[in-house]
């Protein structure tokens, strides 16, 4: 038990945070305990080695070599800008197509009727094609919504009552822990 305490104090000694009463206690202990005495001097030898370890300097031309490679690259902001532009483009196209699909879906009957009325423009085949495609889309959407609804009902049944309360409580607890941990890390880093 005392040796365990001594081991803890040795770690504090290596961290440079050993208080004076602790140092006196440790000193007294290692005079009585051969095993801890041996440990202490081994640790001391390791610490001495660390203290003498010099910081290794980077080679003399290190900076020039890195900068020569960096000058071949575009500026970091430019890299980000081009990536952001690409993502914006993809999302933009996606949202325009979504909006168009939604508008067509909402007013499909009116569009089909309008196309069918324009006999002179020979748009009847297009109207028929649209009507057929629209029926398919409606069928698939209904099927999807029905399955989703069944799935959600089952989930709700599973997590009803006490289970859902426990789940929410656990989720909140984890969330609080994460927030506290992050806050602690940021505060200490500052």
């Amino acid at each position: 038990m005392e040796c365990e305490k001594a081991g803890g104090y040795m770690m504090k000694y290596m961290d440079g945070v050993l208080a004076e009463p602790e140092a006196l206690w440790l000193n007294k202990h290692i005079l009585q305990c051969e095993h801890c005495k041996e440990d202490f001097f081994l640790y001391d030898h390791i610490m001495e080695h660390f203290a003498k370890m010099p910081l290794c300097d980077a080679p003399a031309n290190f900076e020039e070599r890195v900068m020569a490679r960096i000058r071949l690259l575009p500026a970091p902001a430019a890299l980000t800008d081009s990536l952001e532009r690409a993502f914006c483009g993809i999302w933009g196209v996606f949202f325009v197509l979504m909006a168009l699909g939604l508008l067509l879906g909402m007013s499909k009957d009116a569009v089909i009727a309008w196309l069918s009325e324009r006999a002179g423009l020979a748009l009847a085949p297009l109207a028929a094609l649209m009507a057929s495609a629209s029926d398919d889309v409606t069928r698939v959407s209904n099927l999807f919504l029905m399955n989703m609804s069944q799935f959600l009902t089952r989930i709700w049944q599973f997590f009803s009552g006490l289970q859902v309360i426990l789940l929410i409580a656990m989720g909140l607890l984890i969330l609080v822990q994460i927030v506290l941990y992050k806050k602690d890390k940021v505060d200490t880093a500052k």
Partner: peptide
């Protein structure tokens, strides 16, 4: 550096090259 001044990065290299090199070594 993010505003396009690459020379600022040279200063960062000068500050941290020994630390990085030492740890990697």
């Amino acid at each position: 550096c993010l505003q396009g001044n690459q020379d600022s990065f040279a200063e960062l290299i000068a500050r941290y090259k020994n630390l990085v090199y030492s740890v990697i070594l």
